[in-house]
């Protein structure tokens, strides 16, 4: 498969989305990401039973925090797909890129990524 996904996406690999803590998600925005999405395995298929379900709860908590402080909660999202769904991965990447483009850059100043270009972070447990 030679499918391509948008170049503005930076992938951070984790062993399981259950490893993704609230602070990781907040820090990505603090360091200048315009959007972040977590890609876990299908619900019910977690090798560690509930890692992807926990990740979703944490993503939802960040959404709540964003609503409270006036940042767009759409900047963060959780997706589920299997490791064999490359086409779906590309579709999600394009969907998130489009969504963040429409929202515009994050009002948080970019600190450590050294670029003013749009940046979307994908935290991915499917390799």
């Amino acid at each position: 498969m030679r499918a391509q996904y948008p170049a503005s996406i930076r992938i951070i690999k984790v062993p399981c989305t259950g490893k993704v803590d609230l602070i990781y998600l907040l820090k990505t925005f603090e360091t200048g990401a315009d959007g972040v999405y977590v890609v876990g395995c299908e619900e019910g298929n977690c090798h560690f039973v509930a890692g992807n379900l926990r990740a979703r709860k944490r993503v939802n908590r960040v959404k709540e925090i964003f609503k409270q402080i006036g940042l767009e909660s759409e900047r963060i999202e959780m997706f589920n797909l299997s490791a064999g769904e490359g086409t779906k991965f590309v579709k999600i990447a394009e969907e998130m890129t489009e969504r963040i483009k429409n929202l515009g850059p994050s009002p948080i100043s970019k600190k450590n990524i050294g670029s003013d270009n749009q940046e979307t972070v994908s935290i991915n447990s499917n390799s």
């Binding site: 609230l22 602070i23 907040l26 820090k27 925005f29 603090e30 925090i65 402080i69 006036g70 940042l71 009002p107 948080i108 100043s109």
Partner: peptide
């Protein structure tokens, strides 16, 4: 402490 500090920084940066 980490979560609150990060949230405060994001809100204030915004």
């Amino acid at each position: 402490v980490e979560i609150l500090s990060s949230t405060i920084r994001l809100a204030r940066e915004k």
